[in-house]
Write a protein that binds this DNA or RNA. Structure first.
Lengths: 147, 147
DNA sequence: TCCTAAAAGAGAACAAGTCTCAATATCGTT
DNA sequence: AACGATATTGAGACTTGTTCTCTTTTAGGA
């Protein structure tokens, strides 16, 4: 496991405990599975992956865990393609990326940009709205699918 | 009808004709309905609105029309809340806005920001990816729902 | 007016996500 | 260590947004 994934896992367990949640098997399995992915995974992929475990994790538990993790700011939810959500860990150090999604092959290319973050940060302060998160998705075609 | 909505309607019909599409009743109704909304509407809201027309428009036709309009760059599709899409006109002059969505009441607050657009524009040029569109969604709580 | 392909409508089918509820596990308290 | 209140869990039914299928209707050029 990479260093950041490991520290995320610890951070996540700490935050869950902090929130007064007990440590059940299903949620623990979801956290571990998320630690194993470096970019967004869909809930159903996770479900597939965990359904095979001994003991198997139920779909409802996967969704439940993801929702709680999202609420605690531990994972980020993004729309990966028409009507399906992807989930990925949020780096506790605040470092994060966004995605370019290819309309032809569905491939997701992560990127980060400080100017973009700065613009959003400033905007968040100026608006009459309490911003807790943001999504940026670039849509188009990846270099492999370009004409 | 507002000035921009009117010009969008004309622009849309012209683009549809340009694309070699015939002018059927259902698609025309969808275009007119979209012109009547200044911010994103869900497909089902449109369906509801159009189902009551004389003659009524079928759901399949609504989705079909929205997809074509999206393909032609006439409407923009955004995720308004977990798993439901909203559609809104794209101003032919290129002027566009993004949305802040309240996690409590679901209200959508449109905003625009030139710094943000500039950051995205530059990023699009630098990336090894042909960017054709982008979504930005701020999530959090609106001032009415804030503690 | 005729003909052909596009457009449309009804409803079935599908897929992602949610809900229900009974069974189980956690963990502070004794 | 046992107890009990309460959180957690899994199975599967269900809901909801979206797409598909198939037949009928319509637009618009010949």
């Amino acid at each position: 496991m990479t260093k950041t994934a490991e520290s995320w896992t610890e951070h996540a367990f700490a935050a869950l405990a902090e929130a007064g949640l007990r440590k059940g098997g299903a949620r623990t399995a979801v956290v571990e599975a998320l630690a194993g992915h470096d970019c967004a995974v869909t809930a159903l992929d996770l479900d597939d992956e965990l359904r095979r475990r001994r003991p198997p994790v139920g779909r409802a538990s996967v969704y439940r865990a993801l929702e709680q993790l999202e609420q605690l700011g531990l994972v980020q939810r993004i729309e990966v393609c028409r009507g399906t959500a992807g989930y990925e860990r949020i780096d506790p150090a605040g470092h994060h990326h966004h995605h370019a999604i290819c309309r032809d092959c569905g491939r997701m290319i992560p990127f980060e940009d400080s100017k973009l973050e700065r613009a959003i940060g400033q905007l968040s302060k100026e608006m009459d709205f309490e911003v807790t998160g943001h999504d940026v998705v670039l849509r188009g075609r990846c270099e492999r699918c370009a004409d």
